[in-house]
Amino acid sequence: MAYMPVCVQCGTHSNPCRCKVLGPTLGFVAFVVAGAVEWPLGALVYLFRHRKGRRIMSHPANVVYPRITSAIPI
């Protein structure tokens, strides 16, 4: 049996029912996939260039999740 995470965001004004399920759930899945790739890469870059490594490791949380969550209004 596979487990699929479901994220719910209530109190938004982007749709009439004021709850979002699909956007935050897909955002979370994209966050995990991007994090699996970017965090090890960022840790390697951090050894030589601290600021750039931190920026790479924070990319999924600062860019990927918010863009996908806000792009899907339901």
Rank of each mutant, 00 (worst) to 15 (best):
M1D: 13
M1S: 12
M1Q: 12
A2T: 14
A2W: 05
Y3H: 10
Y3E: 12
M4I: 15
M4N: 13
M4P: 01
M4C: 09
M4K: 15
P5L: 10
V6T: 12
V6C: 00
V6Y: 08
C7Q: 10
C7T: 10
Q9V: 10
Q9C: 09
C10N: 10
C10V: 14
G11A: 00
G11H: 01
G11Y: 02
G11M: 07
T12S: 08
T12Q: 09
T12L: 05
H13S: 12
H13A: 10
S14Y: 08
N15M: 03
N15V: 06
P16G: 08
R18H: 15
R18C: 12
R18A: 14
R18L: 14
R18K: 15
R18E: 13
C19L: 05
K20H: 03
K20I: 01
V21S: 05
L22I: 14
L22H: 09
L22M: 07
G23W: 04
G23P: 05
P24M: 02
P24K: 08
T25I: 04
L26P: 03
G27W: 00
F28M: 07
F28L: 15
F28R: 06
F28Q: 02
V29G: 01
A30Y: 03
A30Q: 05
A30M: 15
A30C: 14
A30F: 13
F31R: 04
V32Y: 06
V32P: 04
V32Q: 11
V33C: 10
V33E: 04
G35S: 15
G35C: 02
A36W: 05
V37E: 00
V37I: 11
E38I: 01
W39K: 09
W39Q: 06
W39R: 08
W39F: 06
W39S: 00
P40F: 04
G42R: 00
G42V: 02
G42Y: 02
G42Q: 02
G42T: 02
A43I: 03
A43K: 04
A43M: 11
L44P: 06
L44A: 10
L44V: 11
V45D: 07
Y46I: 04
Y46R: 11
Y46E: 09
Y46S: 15
L47T: 08
F48W: 15
F48Q: 07
F48M: 06
F48S: 09
R49V: 15
R49S: 09
H50R: 14
H50Q: 13
R51H: 13
K52S: 01
K52N: 06
K52C: 07
G53V: 00
G53C: 02
G53D: 00
R55Q: 15
R55D: 13
I56R: 00
M57E: 03
S58I: 05
S58F: 08
H59C: 07
P60E: 00
P60G: 02
A61G: 14
A61I: 05
N62S: 09
V64L: 07
Y65G: 04
Y65T: 03
Y65I: 06
P66D: 06
R67K: 11
R67H: 08
I68G: 03
I68P: 05
T69C: 14
A71D: 06
A71P: 02
A71L: 12
A71N: 01
A71E: 07
I72C: 05
I72D: 02
I72H: 07
I72V: 13
P73E: 08
P73N: 14
